[in-house]
Amino acid sequence: MSTEAPAIFAPRPGLLPRLADRLLRRPRMFVFLMVLPITLWLGIVYVGALIALLIQSFFSIDEFSGMVVREFTLKTYGELLRPANLDILLRTVVMAGAVTLAAAVMAFPIAYFAARYARGIWKALFYVGVMLPLWSSYLVKVYAWKLVLAKEGILNWIFAKLHLTWALDAFLGLPVIGGNSLSVSYAGTFLVFLYIWLPYMIMPLQAALVRVPPGLIEAAADLGAHPGQSFRMIILPLALPGMVAGSIFTFSLTLGDYIVPQIIGNSRLFLGQAVYLQHGTAGNIPLAAAFTVVPIVVMGLYLWGARRMGAFDAL
C-alpha cells in the first residue's frame, strides 16, 4: 500500500493566500503587476503632461483679446525665431554648456581621488562632503551666494585685503561676463550654477571610475605608456559613461532653472525665466509651452549624439 508524499508547499486556505501563491508561481505576471502602478503613473501623469504641453505649443494667442486660439498653427514656434527669443535660447544653451564643461573638469580629479585612493574614513568623508550641500535648502544656498558675491560680500572683502581689488574690477569690466558686481553678472550666475550642480557630476564620475581595473593602468605603465597616454586611452574612455550621465544632470538642470538667474544675474532672461514670465505674467501659455519644448528637443539631440558615440555602452 503506497501513500503519497505530502506537498512541500501545501496550498493555503483563503482567497488572498491562494492569489499570492499563484503569482509566486508565475514570475512574469508578478513582475508585471509590480511594475504596472509606476508605469501607469509615468504614462498618465508624466507622459500625458508632456503630450498636453506639446499640443498647447501648436496653439496661438489672440493679440486683441488675449485668449488662446485652439487651432493648429506654427505661429507660436515662429515667435521663437524673433531676435529677443533667439537671444534667450542661445544664452541659456551656452550657459548650460559652460557649466557642464566646467563641472566635468572640476569633478574629474575629485572623483578620481575618491575612486583610487580614498579608503575607510576618507571615503566616508568624501561622500559626506559631496552630499552635504544637497541637504540644505536650494533657496538658502542661492541667497547665501548672493551675499557672498555682492559688493559688500566676503569675496570683495578678501580681494580688498589682498590688495587685488583692481583685478576684480578689471574682470568685472570685461564685456558680456562682467557687470557692476559678481552678483549681477553672468560670471556670478555661472559660479552659482557650478556650485549647485557639481555634486551631480561628481557622483556618476566616481561610480564609473571605481569600475576601472587598476591592473589595466599598471599594465599600460609596464608597456611603456606615460600617464598622459594611460589617461587618454584607458581612464577617459572608461569614465566617459559616468561623465555623460553627470552631464545629463548638469546640462538639463541648468537649461530649465529659473531661480538662480532670477536671484543671481542681470535683467537678461534665461529659458526658465521666459517660461515663467510667459505663463505666469503675460498669460501666453502657447509661447511658454513652445519655450518648454526647446530643452526637450535639445536634450533629445544630446542623448542621441551620446548614444551614437557609444557613451551608453558601458552603463
Rank of each mutant, 00 (worst) to 15 (best):
L23S: 00
A10F: 00
T254I: 09
A288D: 01
V140P: 08
I8Y: 01
V31C: 07
G129I: 10
F9Q: 05
L191H: 04
G246K: 02
L269F: 11
V35D: 01
I154Q: 09
Q229I: 05
K151G: 11
V212G: 02
G305D: 07
W135S: 06
Y77D: 05
L315W: 05
L147C: 03
Y143S: 08
T100A: 12
F64G: 04
L101G: 09
G97V: 13
L269K: 08
P175A: 10
R26M: 02
E71W: 05
L301C: 11
T250K: 05
L19C: 07
R82W: 10
G97S: 12
A288F: 00
G310Q: 10
G78N: 06
T250I: 08
A314G: 05
T281F: 14
P37T: 03
M243K: 02
L40Q: 03
P6T: 01
G66E: 08
P213S: 07
I248H: 03
A115Y: 11
P175N: 08
A118Y: 15
A167H: 03
L205I: 04
T3V: 15
L209Q: 02
A274D: 00
K141I: 12
P237S: 12
V99D: 04
M67P: 00
W304C: 07
H163M: 12
A187P: 02
T92A: 14
F72L: 14
L89W: 02
L36N: 08
V94A: 13
F126C: 04
P11W: 01
G188P: 06
L172K: 04
L33E: 00
L147W: 08
V93C: 14
V31I: 12
L209W: 03
V210Q: 13
M34E: 00
P295N: 14
A144G: 15
W122R: 13
G14L: 01
T76H: 06
F72R: 03
G188L: 07
S136R: 13
I8E: 00
L269N: 01
A150L: 03
L271D: 02
K123W: 07
V93R: 00
M201Q: 14
G246L: 04
G14N: 03
A104E: 11
V184H: 07
S65H: 05
A98W: 07
P214A: 13
A160E: 15
E79P: 03
L287A: 13
G120H: 09
T92Q: 12
L172R: 04
V297D: 09
S2I: 05
T165L: 15
G129H: 06
Y112C: 04
S136W: 13
G224W: 09
M243S: 10
S57L: 01
L253T: 06
P83K: 08
N180M: 11
R308M: 13
G129Q: 08
H279D: 13
L223T: 14
K123Y: 15
S183Y: 01
M95A: 11
K151P: 03
M243N: 03
L182W: 12
L216A: 00
L132I: 10
N180P: 06
F159I: 15
V140W: 11
L15A: 14
P204Y: 01
P237R: 09
V293S: 11
F159Y: 15
A96P: 15
F312N: 10
S181I: 03
M233E: 10
G78M: 07
